[in-house]
Amino acid sequence: MTLNQNHNAEYWRKHLQLESHVEGGSFRETYRAALKLPTSVLPATFKGERNASTGIYFLLEYGDFSAFHRIAADEMWHFYDGYALTIYEIKPGGELVVHQLGKQVHLGERPQLVISAGSWFASRVEVTNGYTLVGCTVAPGFDFADFELGDRAELQKAYPAHAGIIAALTR
């Protein structure tokens, strides 16, 4: 894949004004819907009212990773630039699904995909010295009150078949 040589991770971090994210990588919120959904219409997994939708830019570089975490809403991922992003999803029943977010669809990559609410997921760029710039849309909107960062020991106990990838993608 040929990349625009003027667009590297530092270019995107600077021009999109990205900041460090607690799970790894860099991000910036780009959208928060004005429409609020009251708690009465949301599942019990939400801890209060939520904006109808939110969006972010998210940048990840080789050697870093987005640690296993889960949220209370579905999260749609959109590929923008760089190399494919590998997203590891552990569904509530324990099934591990490995997604490739990218634009080379003939290689099984997808330019957008959805991680279901309640799944544990983590991601990394697996191309040496590569990076990826993606977007994430969450509906109902993201709130850190609904964010849970995975604990390595607890996840390995719950999903022993996936202990290796959990060890690699937790802090």
Rank of each mutant, 00 (worst) to 15 (best):
K103H: 10
A167G: 14
Y159S: 03
L101Y: 09
L85C: 07
F58P: 03
M76K: 15
A153I: 03
F147W: 09
N6P: 01
Y11V: 02
G135D: 02
F68M: 00
N129F: 10
L42S: 02
V127H: 12
T54S: 14
A67H: 12
P43C: 10
G24W: 10
S20I: 07
G135Q: 08
F79W: 06
G25T: 00
E10P: 03
A167H: 12
A163E: 04
L3Y: 12
E10R: 13
L133H: 04
K103M: 10
C136W: 07
G48V: 07
L85G: 02
A84D: 05
P92S: 11
A73N: 06
Y83D: 15
N4W: 02
P111H: 08
G118V: 02
S119T: 08
L3T: 04
R32F: 09
G141C: 06
S20F: 11
A9T: 02
R70T: 04
G48K: 09
H15N: 15
S20A: 15
L60C: 07
T45F: 07
F68R: 00
L107P: 02
S26C: 09
I166M: 13
D81Y: 14
L149D: 01
V125A: 05
Q104P: 00
E75Y: 13
N4A: 12
S123H: 01
K14L: 11
L3D: 03
K91W: 09
I87G: 06
R124D: 10
F144L: 06
D151L: 13
A117Y: 06
H7V: 09
A73H: 13
K103G: 12
H15A: 06
A73W: 10
D74Q: 10
N129Q: 14
E126A: 11
E29H: 07
T137S: 15
L169E: 02
I56C: 09
A163W: 13
I71E: 00
V138L: 07
T137K: 04
F142G: 05
S116H: 11
F147Y: 12
I90V: 05
M76A: 14
Q17A: 15
K157P: 02
E29G: 11
K47W: 03
E10I: 11
A161D: 15
